[in-house]
């Protein structure tokens, strides 16, 4: 019959309307259940999966619970344990960055020799595509993804080009945002450090044992050996030349 479809559709929308009020009455007190305010006094809504419909997030009073893996713009980690930055200016992040939005200058010491620290570190947020590659391929856990999305500004330059100062965050900040990954990482780092230490010790022990057995060849002896090889090579070359002519 003509019109039944329309009525049915109206029924669906009406049910939706009633449901929202019903839902509000039932769940308003429980609205912030599972909410995690992280000590900032914010109301963070974790959408329950078994609730019909969706909770409206009344930003800025309420926030959506961001998952740990959420990524926006990278940040650099300042290791508060050792009180230095983790970045060694190896440049891998700048190499893998798809839109090439990372600029790194390696620092130099007083003598002008490059050291493994960045002098400058720029990320152009107007180019960054939040792809996570810099984080994924950083071998030193020095660059991570920040959850802070509130970056809007009135000016584009230089406000949206972040330098090292603006990008650096303390380790605790990262640990708070990425608890699971941080724990895994700390475990791995501790293990690696232990392994490195063990290796170092073993090496030292081996070296000590070796020293007992035989004296290392003196530098003069090494030099004379090199000289000998060089002489031989020259001799061979001379013979070849003669054979050709």
């Amino acid at each position: 019959m003509f019109g039944t479809g329309l009525l049915k559709g109206l029924g669906v929308t009406f049910k939706h309307l009633v449901d929202t009020y019903k839902d509000d009455m039932q769940s308003t007190p429980a609205r912030y259940q599972g909410s995690d305010d992280r000590g900032k006094g914010l109301k963070v809504i974790d959408q329950p999966v078994d609730q019909e419909g969706l909770l409206t997030i009344q930003y800025p009073e309420e926030r959506r619970l961001l998952p740990e893996r959420f990524r926006y713009i990278p940040m650099l980690i300042w290791d508060t344990e050792t009180d230095e930055e983790r970045c060694t200016a190896c440049g891998i992040c700048a190499k893998v960055c798809p839109p090439q939005c990372i600029w790194i200058t390696r620092a130099t010491d007083e003598a002008g020799k490059p050291v493994t620290r960045p002098q400058d570190f720029f990320i152009d947020a107007t180019i960054c595509m939040s792809c996570n590659y810099c984080v994924e391929f950083c071998p030193f856990d020095a660059i991570k993804m920040d959850h802070d999305a509130e970056l809007a500004s009135f000016e584009r330059f230089p406000h949206l080009v972040y330098d090292k100062g603006e990008l650096t965050v303390p380790l605790d900040y990262y640990a708070a945002l990425w608890p699971v990954q941080y724990a895994e990482e700390q475990e791995r780092r501790a293990q690696e450090a232990a392994e490195a230490r063990a290796k170092e010790e073993a090496k030292a022990a081996r070296a000590a044992a070796k020293e007992v057995k035989e004296e290392t060849p003196a530098p003069e002896a090494k030099l004379s050996r090199a000289e000998e090889l060089k002489q031989k090579a020259m001799e061979r070359a001379r013979q070849r030349r003669e054979a050709q002519s």
């Binding site: 930003y59 800025p60 926030r63 959506r64 926006y72 713009i73 947020a125 107007t126 960054c128 595509m129 939040s130 999305a149 509130e150 970056l151 809007a152 500004s153 009135f154 000016e155 584009r156 406000h159 949206l160």
Partner: peptide, 22 residues
């Protein structure tokens, strides 16, 4: 002329709303 710039690729709804508040 632009009044507010919102970085992000793409900005999440929160980022957009923050921009609107700016």
């Amino acid at each position: 002329p632009v009044d507010v710039y919102i970085p992000g690729c793409p900005p999440t709804p929160e980022a957009l709303m923050f921009g609107l508040m700016k």
